[in-house]
């Protein structure tokens, strides 16, 4: 279910280090996703430009999947300009996004939208950093300083 643009994968490969905080591709995806959701930015991810790097949430993210589902719901409502205090709108969005049949708790459509947000997040980061720094600590510092103040400001 989790797909990443090939360029995103290439861009971030030097940040992945099994001994560092960003250990595998999902970690990279997660940071892209946070930025995409926080900025309310999506970019459609075409199948031919991307690859599915994992079908399921990795073990270390199992406890985060409810939060990710909620953030997708929240950002999608906000970005679409809906009133988050309108019960009917919120309910209809929940029905569109959540699925108890799915391991990720997301419907197929929502899963694709999640990937679009991650792809949007990658674009935001790449606009700030043409090349990923080889040093993760530097990467995290830059992201926090340059991008985090603008996250979820809607």
């Amino acid at each position: 279910m989790f797909r990443m643009h090939k360029n995103a994968s290439m861009w971030g490969k030097n940040l992945i280090d099994k001994n560092g905080p960003i250990k595998f591709e999902f970690d990279l995806y997660y940071i892209f996703l946070l930025v995409g959701l926080g900025m309310g930015r999506t970019k459609i991810l075409e199948d031919e430009d991307s690859k599915e790097f994992t079908r399921w949430y990795p073990k270390s993210y199992q406890s985060t999947k409810h939060k990710v589902a909620m953030l997708l719901l929240y950002s999608d409502l906000k970005v679409s300009g809906f009133d988050i205090s309108n019960r009917q709108i919120v309910k209809s969005k929940i029905e569109e996004i959540l699925s108890s049949d799915s391991e990720s708790l997301l419907s197929d459509v929502a899963g694709k939208q999640l990937n679009n947000y991650a792809n949007g997040g990658f674009e935001v980061i790449r606009e700030k950093l043409d090349v990923a720094p080889g040093d993760v600590s530097l990467f995290l510092s830059i992201i926090y300083d340059e991008i985090f103040p603008d996250l979820f400001n809607f």
Binding site: P21, L34, L37, G38, T64, K67, V68, L71, L151
Partner: peptide, 12 residues
């Protein structure tokens, strides 16, 4: 820092 980011609800 990375561990703290794993709780996305606390970002803002």
């Amino acid at each position: 820092c990375w561990s703290a980011l794993k709780d996305p609800f606390l970002i803002s």
